[in-house]
Simulated assay, not measured.
Amino acid sequence: MPWWLVATVVGGVLVASGALPGGDARDLLERTGPVLLLLLALTVVAELCAAAGLFEAAAAATSRLARGRRWVLWLLVVALATASTAVLSLDTTAVLVTPVVVALARRTGSDPLRFALVVVALANTASLVLPVSNLTNLLADRALRATGADYLALMWAPALAAVVVTVLLLAVRDRGALRGRYDATPARPAPDAPLLAVAALVTTLMAVAFVVGVEPAVAAGVAALVLAVATVARRRPWPAPLPDLVPWRTLLVVAGLFVAVETLRVHGGADVAAAVAGDGHGFGDLLRLAAAAALTSNAVNNLPAYLALEPAAAGDPLRLAALLIGTGAGAVLTPWGSLATLLWWQRCRALLLHVPAGVIVRQGLLLAAPVVVVPVAALVLTTA
């Protein structure tokens, strides 16, 4: 039975039966509805940009910049994924950067799976940098402001530690694949140069809108609409049948997951989570909370994990920071640990890049503990 059908049936039964009360269901929709709309719009943007040749053009430019040196190419991918995640959010990185990197790897004769895995790793572990980098950051930023704490002053060291640890571990793992040089193949001409220019401009303006604080779902929705109109105006074919442009299966799975976790929270799950998370401000106490957040995120997804464990932070800045480390950097162990990983997985399938779930889990086993322990230590050292 397809996962989307299971999720739809389970979610519908939980709401219809009253297991999830109506008021809680409405609150859940208000919190997560914009996330699902963002997922929908970003996927449409990615498909239309790919059809316009934007990702192929970006890959060609990056391969020229590295001048045949594969390790430089890898570092450029690291910089691109980190900057995109920090400024545009982890979900944007998963949707927009993944096609660029896969095209880049294929153009240069590099291993596309190794390069794509760098993107999904940094989409998660670099998501602590700014409030806009992750939806959970935005939720925590409101709570931090209420206490008088500043997000950047609190999180700069854990964010830096998470990125550095990720890059070092992946560099050691992939050192064999980064040796040697490459000869880039000539860039293919864009199928429609004016449409390519529109796609580049729209994507840039969408990024600016994210940075200046426009609601991400609104900015991405407008971008998708403009690109759709431009595609019709230029009389270009759609990259896929219209129903397949929208990732409705992924939307249904994620929505069903949110409903199931919220139902558990309402019926005592929050109390259990708070008991597991403990209390206190010492290194061991904060690590316990971050570890509980990471484990919960990898079990059910990091957004519902944050919502379930936020009361355990009790509005305390240090505990909120530890919670973010666990739900942000620590959600790398399973394909459903974060929405960004699900989006990345869906993009890889669309790009005909097969990624078994076991590959994601093995990378998660390499990263999960270090990207939680080291950032928590950095948090304690810089706030002592």
Score class of each variant (00 low, 15 high):
Val87His: 03
Ala52Arg: 01
Ala83Gln: 00
Val72Met: 08
Thr85Glu: 07
Arg64Gln: 12
Arg67Asn: 03
Val78His: 07
Leu38His: 04
Leu76Pro: 01
Trp74Phe: 13
Thr82Trp: 12
Val78Met: 04
Thr62Asn: 03
Ala81Tyr: 10
Ala59Ile: 14
Leu42His: 13
Arg67Phe: 04
Ala83Gly: 14
Gly68Cys: 06
Ala41Glu: 01
Arg64Thr: 10
Ala59Tyr: 01
Trp74Lys: 04
Val44Ser: 03
Phe55Thr: 02
Phe55Asp: 13
Trp71Met: 04
Gly68Gln: 09
Cys49His: 00
Glu56Tyr: 00
Thr82His: 12
Glu56Ala: 15
Arg69Glu: 09
Arg64Leu: 15
Ala52Ile: 11
Val44Phe: 06
Leu40Asn: 10
Arg67Pro: 01
Thr85Asp: 02
Ala51Tyr: 04
Ala52Phe: 07
Ala51Arg: 12
Ala41Gly: 01
Ala83Trp: 08
Ala61Gln: 01
Arg67Ile: 05
Arg64Phe: 06
Ala61Trp: 12
Thr43Gly: 05
Trp71Phe: 13
Leu40Glu: 06
Ala57Cys: 01
Leu73Met: 06
Val77Arg: 07
Ala41Gln: 01
Val77Pro: 00
Trp74Gln: 05
Arg67Tyr: 09
Ala60Tyr: 06
Trp71Pro: 05
Thr82Asn: 04
Trp74Cys: 03
Ala41Met: 03
Ala59Ser: 12
Gly68Lys: 03
Leu80Thr: 13
Glu56Phe: 10
Glu47Trp: 04
Val45His: 02
Val44Leu: 07
Arg64Gly: 02
Ala58Gly: 03
Ala79Lys: 04
Val72Tyr: 07
Val44Pro: 00
Ala59Phe: 11
Ala83Thr: 14
Val72Ala: 14
Trp71Leu: 06
Leu75Cys: 14
Ala81Glu: 01
Leu39Arg: 11
Leu38Cys: 05
Leu48Tyr: 11
Leu54Gln: 08
Leu54Met: 14
Thr85Gly: 05
Glu47Phe: 09
Ala52Gly: 12
Val44Ala: 10
Thr82Ala: 13
Arg67Trp: 08
Gly68Phe: 07
Leu39Ala: 13
Ala57Pro: 00
Thr43Arg: 01
Arg64Ser: 02
Ser63Gln: 06
Glu47Ile: 00
Val72Arg: 15
Phe55Lys: 01
Cys49Leu: 12
